[in-house]
Simulated scan of single mutants.
Amino acid sequence: MGHIVPLSQIAVAMQAQGHRVALAVNDLTHAPQLLAPHGIPCFQAPRFVPPAAPRTPLRNHADVLRFNGYDQADRLHSLINAWRDLLRLLRADKVICEFAPTAQLAAGSMAIPAVSLDNGFYMPPPQDPMPPLRVDEPAGPLLLRQSEKRVLETVNAVLARLGSAALPRFCALYQGEVWYRNWTEFNHYGAHSPQRHVGQIFGPSVGAAPVWPVGDGPRIFAYVKADNPAALDMLRSAISAGFRILAYLPGHRQSDIEALRRSGRAHISAQPVCLAQLDHEIEIGVWQSPTGGIGHSLEKGMRMLFLPTQVEQLRACLAVRRAGLPAYVAMGEESWMAVFDKLLGMPRVGLNRHWQPADVPRLAALLAG
Rank of each mutant, 00 (worst) to 15 (best):
H3P: 02
S8D: 00
V12F: 00
V12G: 02
Q17G: 05
Q17M: 14
H19Y: 12
T29M: 08
Q33E: 09
L35Q: 00
P37L: 02
P37S: 04
I40Q: 12
P41H: 13
C42M: 07
Q44Y: 06
Q44A: 11
A45P: 01
A45W: 03
P50C: 10
P51T: 14
A52I: 11
T56N: 13
H61Q: 14
V64N: 03
V64T: 07
L65D: 06
G69N: 05
D74S: 13
L76A: 09
H77G: 14
L79S: 05
N81P: 03
R84M: 11
L87M: 12
L89R: 13
L90C: 08
R91V: 09
K94I: 09
K94H: 09
C97D: 04
C97R: 03
A100E: 02
P101E: 01
A103S: 02
Q104P: 00
A106N: 01
A107P: 08
A107R: 05
G108K: 09
A111T: 09
I112V: 07
P113R: 06
P113I: 04
P113T: 03
A114P: 00
S116C: 11
D118N: 05
D118I: 04
D118C: 09
M123I: 10
P125H: 06
P125R: 14
P126R: 05
P129T: 00
R134L: 04
D136E: 14
E137R: 15
L143K: 14
R145Y: 07
R145V: 05
R150I: 12
E153A: 10
E153F: 03
V155M: 13
A157S: 10
L159M: 15
L162V: 00
G163F: 08
L167S: 01
A172M: 11
V178W: 00
Y180A: 05
N182F: 06
W183Q: 13
E185N: 14
A191M: 10
G199F: 02
G199E: 05
S205C: 12
G207Y: 00
A208M: 13
A209R: 15
W212M: 06
G217Y: 01
A222D: 11
D227G: 06
N228V: 11
N228G: 08
A230M: 12
A230L: 13
S237L: 03
S240K: 13
I245A: 04
L246Q: 10
R253P: 14
S255M: 12
D256T: 04
E258F: 10
A259E: 12
S269C: 04
Q271T: 13
L275P: 03
A276M: 01
A276W: 02
A276Y: 01
L278T: 07
D279G: 10
E283W: 01
E283G: 08
G285K: 03
V286H: 06
S289D: 05
G295P: 03
G295C: 03
H296E: 09
H296L: 10
L298A: 04
L298H: 02
L298W: 04
G301R: 02
G301Y: 03
M302P: 00
L307R: 03
T309W: 12
L314N: 02
A323I: 04
G324Q: 05
Y328I: 15
E333G: 12
M337A: 14
V339A: 14
D341G: 15
R348F: 11
Q356V: 15
D359Y: 08
V360S: 09
R362E: 15
L363M: 15
A368Y: 05
